[in-house]
Structures are given as C-alpha cells and as structure tokens.
Nucleic acid binder design. Structure first.
Lengths: 228, 228, 228, 228
DNA sequence: TATGAATGAGTATTCATTCAT
DNA sequence: CATGAATGAATACTCATTCAT
C-alpha cells in the first residue's frame, strides 16, 4: 500500500475498474436505480458485492461515478468538429442533428435517458442538472447559435425564435428516439428511424426558411374564450 | 401451500375510495414507484397501511389501478371537441396543440410522465403501452390526420410527411413540457411557457406551409463519409 | 415483474451450517411450524434473521431442508443390524421393537412426531409421505416380514394377519410413546416406559403364538343390528 | 336487549349459533389452528369476520368453545350402553372397540386428532388434557377394566398387564385410523379398514387369552449388551 | 484486492381485533 | 345482530452495508 491520500469516496488506490463502471451503468440503465440490486451489478461485472465496496462508498456513489464516467458529452465533440466546417447553416444543422440522432439511436442511450428522466431527476437533482447541461441544454444552445447564424446570414426568416426552435427540434428528435425507437412505441405505430430523422429535419428547416407566403393565422386566439 | 381462497385477496366490495387512488397516483408520480413506501401513500390518504390491503392485493395492484383510473385520455376529449370545428386546418392544429399543452403544463402531469417513462415502461410494459396508446400515439394520430387534411386542402405542402411531422411536434412540445417546465431545466435556460408554445407551433406550421423557395439542400450527404 | 435472477435466491455456496438446520428442526418441532417466528430460529442458532435468508429461500424451504437433513431413517439401520441375527423370530421382533422404542423415547422424537402429524401432513403432504415411507411404513414392512417368517417357521399361528399385526404393534407403541411419554398423558395415567414396552410386546407375541384354544368368539356380530 | 348478565367470554345473549361452532371446528381441524384465518371460518359459516366477535372473545376462545362443544365423549356413551350387556368379556371388548373404531373412521375425526396432537397439545395443554382424559385415557380405562374383568373370570391369562394391554390396543387402533385411514398412508400400503379392525382385535384377544404354550422367550435380554 | 458470510434497518404483507353504523 | 371498513402489531422477506479472512 502506498502513501497516497485516501481518495474521498473510496478505498481503492487506483481508479475503479472499467468493468464495474460499465456494469453499473448498464444495469442501472436497464432496470432502474432502485430496482437494481447491487448483486446484479456485481454479477454483471463478474465480481461479488463486497468488491464494489472496495471502490465505492455506496450505491449512490456507484451510480454517481458510473454516470460521470459513462456519460459522453456528445455536443462538445460535435461542436469541435464543426469549427472548420464551411457550408450553409442548414447543412451544418443537419450535420449536427444527424450526429446526435446517431448517438440517440445507440441501444445504450434509451435506457440511460429513462434512468435520467425517471429517477436521477428526482433522487439526484444535481446530477440530473449536470447531465442536462451537457446534453439537451448544450444541444439546444449549439443548434440555437446555428439558427441565429442562419438568421444573420439571411438564410432563415428573421422572425424565427432561435432559442425555442432549437429546443423544439432537439426535444422532438430526442423524445422520438426515446419513445419510438427505444421504448417500443414503434410497435404501435411503426416507422423507420431514417425517415423519422429526415422528415423531422426537413420540417424543421422548412420552418426556418425564408418564404413568400402570407402569415398563417393570427395568434390572437391565445387568450380567447375557448381555453379553460 | 397456503389455503388462501382463490378469490382476489382484496376484500373491498365496492370500488376503492377515490382518496386512495389519488394519493397513490400522486405519491408514486412524485417519488417514483420503488422509492415510495406504502406507508407514504397511506399517510397521504389519511389511512393506515392496512386499509390499502383492504382494497388492493399488492403494491403493484395499487399502482396498476391508480394508473388506470387516474389517467386522463386527453386526446379523446380533444378529438370530440374538434368535430364541429369549422376553421383552417392550421387553426385546428393550433387549437389541438394548445389544449394538450395546457394539459402538459398541469403540475401533476410532469411527475406522471416521469413515472411512466422511468419505471412503468420497464416494470409494467403492458401498462406503459396502454398509456402510450392513449397519450402520445393518439396525439400523433390526431395531429397526423389534421396535417393530412391540410395537405388535401392545399393548405400544406404536398411533400410533407404527415405522420412524422405530427410525431415531431407532439414529441417536441411534450419533452419541452417535461424538461423545461417540470424538470427544472428552465433554471438553466429560462423561457416562458407561452413563448415556447407559440414559437414552437409557429415553427411547425411554417414548416408545413406551402412555399416558393427552392429545396434547402440535398440530402445526398446521408450516406456520406462522415457517418460511422 | 422483478428482475430477480432465475437461480435459487439463497446465496450460500456450501451446505447450510448444521447449527442452522438443527435450530430450525428443533424450534419447529417444539413450537410448530406456523407458530415459530424465523427470529426464534435465528436466536436459537445464534445468528440473525438475515443469515437464514443467506442459506434458505423461505421459511418453507428452511423447514423442508431441516426435515430432510435431520430425519433419521431408523428402520434402515435396524434392518441392517438384523441380517446377521440368528435367533427365534420372536426374539428378533423384540430386538427390533426395542430399538425403535428407544428411538421414540428420545426427547427430540416426540415434538418431531407432532410436527409431522400436526402440520407437515396438511401443509406439505409430499414431505409427510416421505417421512411416513421411511418411518411407520418401513417399520410395518420390516416387522411384517418377520411375522411372516415366524409363520413360515411354525413359530406363529398360521392364521395371523402379518401385515395388520405389524401395523398394530408399530402403531400401538408409537402412539403410546407420543401420548404417554411425550405429550404428558403419563400424568393422567402414570406408567413406566419399560413396563409399557415389555407388556406391549409380550401381549403382541402372545397374540401371534400358536395356541390350542378354541376361537374366542365368532365375528358374526360385525354386520349385526348394533351398528349404525 | 335484556338485562342478563354479560356472559364472561362473549357479548351474545344466547348461545353461539351451531353453524359457527361447526364451521370453526371443521376449518381448524382441516387446516390447523394457526393456519386458519378467522375469515375462512366466517366464510364457511356464511357470515363475516365481525360476527364471530359478537359471540367469541378471540380466536382462542373460538377454538376452545368449538372443541368443547364438538367433542363427543364417545366412551361415556359406550360405557352406558355396556352396563346391561350380558356376554363374554371378549365379546364386550370387541363391541366397545368396534364402536370407537367406527367413531375414528368418521371423516371429521382424523383432522380433529391432528389438530389435537399437532397444535392443541402445545398451545393449549389444558384443553389437550381434557380431550385426552375423555378420549384415549377413558378408552384405556374402560378397556382396562374389561380386561381386568376377563382376568377375574378366568377368561384371560392371569399374568396379563391389563392397563398396558388396554393402552396398546387403543393406541394401535387409533394411530392406524389416523395414519392409514385419514392421513393417506393407505396409498403407500393399502388395507381395508374392516380388515385392520378385525385382525387387530383378533390379535389382541389372542394375546389376552389363556393358552397352553410355553413362555415365548425370556425377557432377560432387556438389560443386555446390545442396547446402547 | 476480493470474497463469503453475516448484519440490521427497512418494507411489503398478513390478520386478529375493533367499531360505527 | 351483523356488516363493512379500518387498524396496528406482528412477521416474512429484502438488500445495502460491513468485515474478518
């Protein structure tokens, strides 16, 4: 045993084995945090329960560190890939969205999304906010900036709400991935992921684009009497 | 091995008291299914644990029946309200979406969404499918039919994908409600719910509307070399 | 609905500790199966409740395994001790009966008999049948064979019912052990165990022995009018 | 409501309905005391749990009173039927045993025996002793007196142990009834109840009868070296 | 480092018992 | 008299956590 200061949250000298982190992340994601017994994680990792406690302080600590390590800050990568890009903004947006769409299509993403929304959001709000900040929020921000740029360049309508538009397309694709791809709603209403992506992005870009049409309708109804 | 009677083990003859179903639904929604102790439900309903077992067979039975009874099939109502409507399709769509948006804004909806996506989807898949069929799926179907109608009437572009467009706007608004309104992401990126709704629906309807512009870009990139 | 592993839910790899099996057997025998709290067993074994569940799946499993392991197939042993015996059949029978009588006199046998007859027979019929097959039934068979042998050799009357005679003496001694020795009826009608044994076996052997007397009475009354 | 003094152990003014006592006795006998839920008794009697508490103070009280009332002091009856009898003692004995045998053959007797031996003996020893005093013990006493009478009259051997002989035949028949008739051991070793009775009684009376044979063997072995 | 064994606080579930109606 | 509803103490069972080896 060396003289390294004991790390604050475990006894292990080195970093926890990847296999444990992986097993924890996947088991939690698959069955949920509460529904997962530590023994399941241990089994999945090929060790015994006790070993977990050599590296982690508690079930919570295990989840926390598994999430930290496993979570890919996808938008970070994408943004970096984007700086050198020379293309119309709409093409950049499509490029960005395709990247994240592919990420969301990953079989491991759906369960993780469920874990985040379903349990982490309530039981570990801070963790949830971290995930959100690096995921959805950063996605929205990135896309939002591109929309802004499109507006500046005259590529998009000047009266577009860049912020909300970005949230809309990011949320729309994300929940479609979650519900239709991962949660089995495709069985109830089948649809090809490629078509979902293409049609959704087409719709989005059309919505942004400069047109010659008349205003669609007035919004004056919003405060109208038909609302309860 | 036991001589338990074959009849259902709950004893209540009449339907379970509303207060129990309410308390169960809300407590489960608020804290999650696994994280909720039956005693919490009992406390919330002002009874004791034993009373729950007078009406329900198990925690699972309680959840099941609470979900069945509490869940409002919102789209059903909306569709009925729509049959008499005489208006441009875009107005109808805005009307429908406003209705569901208001529903999703309800403080009780967010937790229920979390419960459904986070735990029910994994632990009680059949229940989840029922919810989905009456919620998101029916919403998509309804909006999809309206988009179709708009296309027929020449109000919308003939090349929009009615199905996917509907999913997009329903998913987009739903997840924005969940994340930005209920899960506190508004703190990270503040935004007024009214603005979210208006801008999202504007964007959507713009996306559907007939335009005179050229196609924004080709989709030829999809199979391009940047994909993994 | 749960994600429990399909493998048996007890975790112990090796066989359960003797002390647990012993404690379980004795506590169940002493107080009865239903009346025994798992904590009593745990206390008797000097462990905590949780430890029981490390080795056993349930209270039922604990009983089952305790009975399987603790039960001594006494007649098996006796039969083996008998093969070399050269003696009059009546002596062999007395030898056999003395062996089992001593077994039934053991302070642990009475409670076990009660457990078997009182609860196991109803709640775990298969277990009961196993016990019976190795206990009373095997005893009857063994003694029955000896009686048969005695008849062949001319030592016993040729008109005795070997089968039923064996059942009679085995049942008679067994229930006297249970009621008079273990269940305290000796308090109501005191009698020395040795005397019970000797007199009972004498009576039995007399009953079997060849005599010169006339038939005691006719059995013609059996279907007579005094029956209901 | 009249002014009768509240009876010590219930609120009912009149005696408890037979149907309740019957249901209790039979349910307890069938499933065991601990294993029986009061609701089962109530169901069997066609009332609700609450009604039981109008007549009885507790589950224990219910058992106690059900046993008191249901239990037939069979030997009492038999003894009375016997006083006028003019016949050889052996005939009287056969008569008595046939009566009790018939009683023990009753489908309700087996479960009651089990209840007594299995649970009442441990949980309510006083009750058990009452049952034993009026059942087995009285039976033994009665038969014992007859054997004594037979000895006096020279009908039976003078060296017979009247007491133990009586216990032997009563125990023998009783346990055969319990095990072979009621507890299903007949499946393992089939035998007709009539034959059990006849052969057992024949054997018994033979054992008692005066013979010309030599002593079967000496008892000197009892303290011999083969005992442990 | 890792394990097998054990712990104990917690939780679902049961059921005898009560009581207003 | 009897019921339906409810109670609450008891009890089987679970599982995160500990620890000697």
């Amino acid at each position: 045993m060396n003289y390294a200061v004991a790390s604050p949250s475990s006894h292990g000298d080195g970093p926890p084995p990847e296999v444990l982190l992986d097993a924890a992340f996947q088991t939690f994601a698959a069955h949920g945090y509460r529904a997962t017994r530590l023994e399941e994680v241990a089994d999945a990792a090929g060790v015994t329960k006790g070993a977990i406690y050599y590296y982690f302080d508690s079930k919570e600590d295990l989840l926390r560190r598994a999430l930290e390590t496993r979570h890919r800050a996808i938008f970070q990568e994408i943004e970096e890939a984007l700086v050198t890009e020379r293309a119309p903004v709409s093409a950049k947006i499509r490029f960005v969205l395709r990247k994240v769409w592919q990420h969301w299509l990953d079989p491991r993403w759906g369960p993780a999304f469920r874990l985040m929304v379903g349990e982490v959001s309530v039981e570990f709000p801070a963790l949830f906010r971290t995930w959100a900040a690096e995921g959805p929020i950063q996605g929205c921000t990135l896309v939002g900036r591109l929309v802004e740029e499109g507006i500046q360049r005259g590529e998009f309508r000047s009266d577009v709400d860049a912020d909300v538009s970005a949230r809309m397309v990011v949320s729309g694709l994300m929940l479609q991935a979650a519900l239709h791809v991962h949660l089995g709603l495709a069985q109830l209403a089948p649809c090809d992921p490629d078509r979902i992506f293409d049609s959704s992005v087409d719709l989005f870009l059309h919505g942004l684009s400069v047109t010659h049409q008349l205003p669609i309708e007035t919004r004056s109804k919003r405060a109208g009497s038909e609302e309860r």
